[in-house]
Nucleic acid binder design. Structure first.
Lengths: 140, 140
DNA sequence: CTCACTGCAAAGTGTTTGCAACGTT
DNA sequence: AACGTTGCAAACACTTTGCAGTGAG
């Protein structure tokens, strides 16, 4: 688990207990939690920790590119420490988010964006909205 | 321009001047405006119109699937009355949003999502982040 | 005439900020 | 010891709501 502390130091972020807790919580879940969720999950272990700290921490981590911040049309942002390129599947019933790590080749699209619009793509994201297996089973 | 009024009626939405103004403003721009922008653009013609009306109106239009609401990691939502599937190019310098209507074939990806995860895709969106032509010209 | 819509102000929600105390380096 | 970080409360920005009055159907 020292890897995480190393990552923080490499980005000149001090390794405080709260920060490490938030970062490792994110690194060990695939639930794409919101700030609220992170806060609630950690408050048993860190009763004094404030919501503002969670907000400040995810902002630092995001600015150092240690986590990703994203929004799927919901009220609050979600966070993810899994930095490999992947896209998200949002179940419109249960609102859980699943990951898809399969690679989708968009090099030709990016090339077309460049040649047609002069647009230089730095990154992209792709979100699929639909019904997850579990919810579609319940539905019937 | 009667088409728009027809669309409203077809969705049991009353054709009020404000509603028509907002809807046709959206139908005739490709700027993906925010509520604030819509409000400011129309307040010369509709000085009495309130911000709340714009919010309520875009919510109705969105619920009737006459416009799309989306968020590109900014503070406020953007709206778009162009309902054909297309993806967005967000310039990280000037924050303008461009459209790309070229079709990207994801049928095989959606098929894989179904067979691997049991996930039934209803819709998807794709956003490219980068530098637009104009901004990259200024940069040099 | 009815009921959906408007406009205003007030409330709500997620997020950010100011600042004194604290703790990592 | 210095300076980044924390925690609290207050401020903020965007959005929603309650309600009386209005106007489209």
């Amino acid at each position: 688990m020292n890897k995480l502390a190393e990552n923080l130091k490499a980005n000149k972020l001090k390794v405080t207990p709260q920060r490490l807790a938030i970062y490792s919580y994110l690194a060990n879940t695939n639930e794409h939690p919101t700030v609220e969720t992170i806060y609630n999950s950690l408050k048993d272990d860190y009763p004094a920790m404030s919501l503002a700290t969670v907000y400040k921490t995810v902002a630092s981590l995001r600015d150092s590119h240690l986590i990703k911040e994203f929004n799927l049309g919901e009220d609050s942002n979600r966070y993810d420490a899994h930095m490999e390129n992947h896209c998200h599947l949002l179940c419109t019933k249960c609102h859980r988010v699943f990951d898809y790590y399969g690679d989708i080749d968009l090099k030709h699209v990016m090339y077309e964006l460049k040649s047609t619009f002069g647009f230089d793509t730095e990154s992209f994201d792709m979100n699929f909205y639909g019904i997850c297996e579990e919810c579609s089973r319940e539905q019937s």
